[in-house]
């Protein structure tokens, strides 16, 4: 799938393979970070990844979601991931 991420220095596009019929946004961000762009800032420290801590919010195609809970079908064409507010610290991380 094409993954467009609104980074601090502009919109970047990444090609992410379908690792599963359904991936979470966090799975996608983890893939981008580990394999394509290690400069990517997204909320990942002290994260529960189970929808408990509620700190990994991003916008997926304009809608606010928790990255660890929102699922994207493996055959989704293009998705856009943006920071959840204007208080951007860097890339997808916003001030709490």
């Amino acid at each position: 799938m094409n993954v467009r991420i609104k980074k601090s220095d502009g919109l970047k596009e990444y090609q992410v393979p379908a690792l599963s019929p359904s991936m979470t946004v966090m799975d996608i961000l983890d893939y981008v970070y580990a394999n394509l762009d290690r400069s990517l800032a997204y909320y990942r420290h002290s994260a529960c990844n189970q929808g408990i801590c509620a700190r990994c919010a991003v916008k997926l195609d304009g809608k606010t979601v928790l990255a660890c809970a929102a699922q994207v079908p493996g055959d989704a064409g293009t998705i856009v991931i943006e920071p959840v507010s204007d208080k951007v610290v860097r890339d997808l991380v916003v001030a709490s």
Binding site: R38, D91, V93
Partner: peptide, 10 residues
């Protein structure tokens, strides 16, 4: 590191 930024640098 890939990126020298101090801001939320995973």
């Amino acid at each position: 590191l890939s990126c020298p930024s101090r801001k939320y640098n995973l």
